[in-house]
Design a protein around this nucleic acid. Structure first.
Length: 280
DNA sequence: ATTATATCCTGATCGC
DNA sequence: TGCGATCAGGATATAA
């Protein structure tokens, strides 16, 4: 009988875009979109449209056509466009790609049936594709609504003492802890796995049990890996594409994510696949 | 306060 | 070959 035939159906695993992927998209879009005028917004998915407008207000209260795009930035895992109008308060358009979302400019990298929103600009079209429809696009009136509770791992805020104080109270496994967005923002399954491997901390260790030395290694690995991944335009495991429809290349530099059953690149021991909070 | 669970959604895969 | 059932995956609301 097929006991212990733990076939790793690797082809099916998917991950959402994490910090490096979203940063890549934002950096690419910024010079392209800045200064362009928004002419028309079309939602092809009514669910997306329902959650777009500020709660309790009518869409008519927010005439977007004619506004111009200012800043384009990444905040947490979101791409945020500033929509400006002379003499008026700016609005912010925040796109969360979640699992399979793609934000592309003037290219159509996949089936039109997965096109969920279309932003017509005076210099082209900004398209939002999303197979699984987990993605979210929201219009915000206040920048404060977009400031994440977790800290940006690449900012100066992430010091070892700060990280230590955040970790201290938690008895969660460190891997689960890293996936939370209310402590550090931007990490997901791929980078949390790679970071823990790089700093040699077992994913099941209790977050609060890390030594000072381990916390310093964790901080160092987090920043190094995120920076390296950004310089490779992120990781394309299956779905992710950048704003031009291209794949990232950091998947070629992964050590553990999606590699259950393969030999370790450091010591050749077979890597064991582990499931924590529903993630492999 | 912290942590576990259900929910969302679709395509791929599995069993019959 | 086809059909229905099952499942992954992150964030969030809700329950414990």
């Amino acid at each position: 009988m097929g006991r212990s035939s733990k076939v790793c159906s690797s082809a099916t695993s998917e991950t959402m875009p994490e910090l490096p992927e979203v940063e890549t998209v934002a950096r690419q879009l910024a010079p392209t979109l800045k200064g362009q005028k928004l002419l028309k917004v079309d939602f092809l998915d009514t669910k997306l449209e329902r959650t777009f407008w500020p709660p309790g207000s009518l869409p008519a209260a927010f005439p977007l056509a004619g506004r111009s795009i200012g800043n384009v930035q990444r905040i947490g895992k979101q791409v945020v466009l500033t929509l400006e109008e002379p003499g008026q308060k700016p609005l912010w358009l925040a796109v969360h790609l979640r699992m399979t979302g793609r934000l592309v400019f003037d290219v159509e990298p996949q089936e039109p049936k997965h096109l969920r929103a279309r932003f017509k600009l005076d210099g082209g079209e900004l398209l939002f594709f999303d197979t699984r429809r987990f993605g979210v696009i929201k219009l915000h009136q206040e920048m404060a609504e977009l400031v994440p509770t977790g800290i940006e791992p690449l900012s100066n805020e992430l010091t070892s003492p700060r990280l230590a104080s955040l970790l201290k109270k938690s008895r969660q496994p460190i891997k689960t802890w890293l996936l939370r967005q209310d402590r550090l923002v931007g990490l997901g399954n791929i980078y949390a796995s790679e970071i823990l491997f790089a700093c040699a901390i077992h994913p099941e260790r209790a977050a609060g049990s890390l030594s000072e030395c381990e916390i310093r290694r964790l901080r160092r690995a987090t920043r190094a890996i995120l920076r390296r991944a950004i310089s490779h335009q992120g990781t394309t495991f299956s779905d992710y594409r950048d704003s031009r429809g291209n794949k990232g290349s950091f998947q070629n530099l992964l050590h553990v994510y999606g590699k259950g059953g393969e030999p370790c690149k450091k010591c050749e021991t077979l890597l064991v696949r582990l499931v924590q909070s529903g993630r492999s």
